[in-house]
Amino acid sequence: MIILAIDTSNQPLSVALLKDENLLATVTLNNQQKDHSTLLFPVINQLLVQAELKPDQLDRIVIAQGPGSYTGLRIGGTAAKMLAFTLKKELVSVSSLAVLAAPMTSIDSQTVIVPLFDARRQNVFAGVYSYSKGQLVNLVADQHLALTKLVEILAVYSKIIFVGGAAHKFGDFLQKNLPQKDLSWTTGILDYPQAYQLGLLGRKKQPLENIHAYVPAYLRLTQAETQWLAKHQEKLNEPLVEKF
């Protein structure tokens, strides 16, 4: 099975081509000056050329579904959804936080893995994972939450490893608010999402039944919708989008 894996959830852009569990080609860019819209398709094209493959030889597209930057999620998400739809291929979506947790295969089963993304104003997107019998297990669902809330959730665990650039940013806060815990942080390449890991996770999942229904996992309503819902308990009795 030929897999194209795409992660545009945050500043880094990572794309990989896999043949089953083997890596054919991968690129991870972290260019502050250029955005995913400019880079994504040239990178996909470059990888296919180097692997001597044509787009219709892909069997499955795996997309990092979020959480992350809304615009980034939509660029990767639209590309993946449209490629899968137009080429009649399988589409699989995987948590962007799980992608960061995935390389920690050698961690003992007593340690929980906490990947996190900065969501600004002392908020993060985070989930709690562990490895059990070689399988990545999600213990606490990915969510958008205040850092203070995150440390409450983590209080029940004794050994924690934090993953991602945001984990370093909030390092002091986590250390101070989780005393007497065995805490550690990843460094180097492990702080960046690797689409190869995404491809491996996506290889094992069932493809989506309805490609049309795919939307990114934003994990947050827009501010406008939150405010509107606060004032309107009743639902709109018309569909939000009408087609003609």
Binding site: T71, R74, K81, I211, V215, Q223, E225, L236, E242
Partner: peptide, 26 residues
């Protein structure tokens, strides 16, 4: 068209618009 959605806010909210686009495009 997203008119029914956007009229809740009295105008077009860009993030809401973008979310509807990815729902509808395929």
């Amino acid at each position: 068209t997203q008119i029914n959605s956007q009229k809740r806010f009295g105008g077009v909210v860009p993030e809401v618009a973008s979310r509807h686009h990815i729902e509808q495009i395929t």
